[in-house]
């Protein structure tokens, strides 16, 4: 548990000043980065309700081998995330699965905790992707970074984009998930999150 030293880490006044000087308002992100945790902090900002989407296919496209994902009757985003990560964990027989935002903040997790702190993983992932991008050039994006330690199960970190945010999904232990296979998983996650978002916004519109 990190110890908070003195008042260096109280940036509320500075953050407010930056918003004034930049002309922005605090906006919650997928993980509620700038907002206090709330039951819906994990969902995206409410948007004008778009046209109703086509029903989301329940199974993973392609050959993920993870089987059917059954959409839960989720009222809060946490419930959907938990169902998605549990589906991934069971499908891969993994020890733990977690999701975090592009700043290393946890969105949700099931099973065992990652043996590397999320912030460290994010820093390593960012460094690796930047370095590899510099060497490999355009068109060969890095999708997965694996972390290994002698006495631990290997852990893989993947990422995908959703509503302009980068979501990182970590898997420790279990069957290894290829980057291409992960694309199918990511597609399911995107569809489920989008469907949940639309449903929630419509519900809020009904209440409003």
């Amino acid at each position: 548990m990190p110890v908070q030293h003195r008042a260096y880490f109280e940036l509320g006044v500075a953050a407010e000043l930056t918003r004034r000087l930049r002309g922005t308002q605090a906006a919650p992100t997928v993980a509620g980065r700038a907002a206090a945790p709330s039951p819906t902090a994990l969902a995206p900002e409410p948007q004008p309700a778009p046209p109703a989407p086509a029903p989301a296919p329940a199974a993973v496209a392609g050959s993920s081998g993870l089987g059917t994902f059954h959409t839960p009757e989720a009222r809060y985003a946490e419930e959907l995330w938990e169902a998605l990560l549990r589906w991934l964990k069971e499908g891969l027989d993994a020890e733990g699965v977690f999701a975090m935002d592009q700043h290393g903040f946890s969105i949700a997790g099931v099973g065992s905790e990652p043996f590397v702190p999320p912030e460290v993983m994010l820093a390593a992932f960012t460094s690796m992707t930047q370095l590899l991008d510099a060497y490999l050039g355009e068109g060969q994006p890095v999708r997965k970074v694996e972390f290994t330690a002698e006495d631990r199960s290997p852990m893989a970190l993947f990422h995908f984009s959703w509503t302009g945010q980068t979501i990182l999904v970590g898997v420790s232990g279990g069957r290894r998930l290829g980057a291409e296979e992960f694309a199918g998983v990511a597609a399911v996650m995107e569809r489920e999150l989008e469907a949940f978002s639309v449903k929630r916004n419509q519900a809020e519109g009904d209440v409003g």
């Binding site: 990190p2 880490f9 940036l11 953050a15 930056t18 700038a34 700043h103 290393g104 903040f105």
Partner: peptide, 14 residues
């Protein structure tokens, strides 16, 4: 800790 505090408190647009 500094990086974590900055990520936590400053907006992505900043």
């Amino acid at each position: 800790e500094v990086v974590r505090a900055a990520w936590r408190d400053f907006d992505p647009e900043v």
